[in-house]
Simulated scan of single mutants.
Amino acid sequence: MFYEMLANLPKNEQRQSYAIVSNTLVEAPNINDFLLKIIKAIIHTQKSIKFPLRLYK
């Protein structure tokens, strides 16, 4: 939801954004797989629309 909100901002209001992704090792494997899938989708979309976002694991 956070990414969608930022990505929908007008270009003149977009600023470099950062997201930290961490695995606390308490998530079920299917949740971890889901998060990795979402991260890959965000990275792919972010590059194609040239959105200023950096993800750190």
Rank of each mutant, 00 (worst) to 15 (best):
A41W: 02
F51R: 02
I38Y: 02
N30Y: 15
E4Y: 04
K37L: 05
L36F: 04
R15N: 13
L35C: 09
K47V: 04
K57E: 13
P29L: 00
S48K: 04
Q16M: 15
A7E: 09
E27M: 15
F51I: 04
L25Q: 13
K50E: 09
Q46H: 04
K47P: 00
F34A: 12
K47M: 05
N23F: 08
N23I: 04
I39R: 02
L9Y: 05
L35Y: 07
E27D: 14
A41K: 07
N12Y: 15
L55R: 01
N12C: 09
E13V: 11
F51C: 02
K11Y: 09
N30D: 14
Y3L: 03
Y56M: 12
F2M: 02
I43R: 10
F34M: 11
I43T: 10
L53K: 00
L55W: 01
E13W: 15
A7T: 05
S22W: 14
I39Q: 04
N23H: 06
I31A: 11
I38M: 06
K47R: 12
K57C: 08
S48H: 04
I42G: 02
F51K: 02
D33Y: 04
M5R: 13
V21S: 06
S17K: 08
N32H: 09
K50Q: 12
Y3I: 01
A28Y: 08
P52F: 00
S22G: 12
R15D: 07
A28T: 08
L6E: 04
K50V: 02
Q46D: 11
M1R: 05
K57Q: 11
L35A: 11
I38A: 05
P29H: 00
